[in-house]
Amino acid sequence: MHIILNGEETAISGPTLLAMVKEKGFAPDSVIAEVNLQLIKKEDWEQTVLAEGDTVELLSFVGGG
């Protein structure tokens, strides 16, 4: 299955958001996820099943003034 992750098409194997985050090597505690512009709370990641072509944004807080 393919999704658009942070603007780039990428293949994933696991069906859920949580699985995808882990698969891509991110620490779930330090990222925020939006699926198709909807913010998904961390406790819902395991229940969130991704579909072909979904747009996922993974964000985190960085330094800024």
């Binding site: 942070n6 603007g7 891509k24 090597g25 991110f26 620490a27 505690d29 330090s30 990222v31 925020i32 944004e57 993974l58 964000l59 985190s60 807080f61 960085v62 330094g63 800024g64």
Partner: peptide, 14 residues
């Protein structure tokens, strides 16, 4: 603080 897309290559803490 600012909010940005995560860079998959930089494995930094939040």
């Amino acid at each position: 603080v600012a909010l940005r897309r995560v860079d998959p290559k930089a494995k930094e803490k939040d």
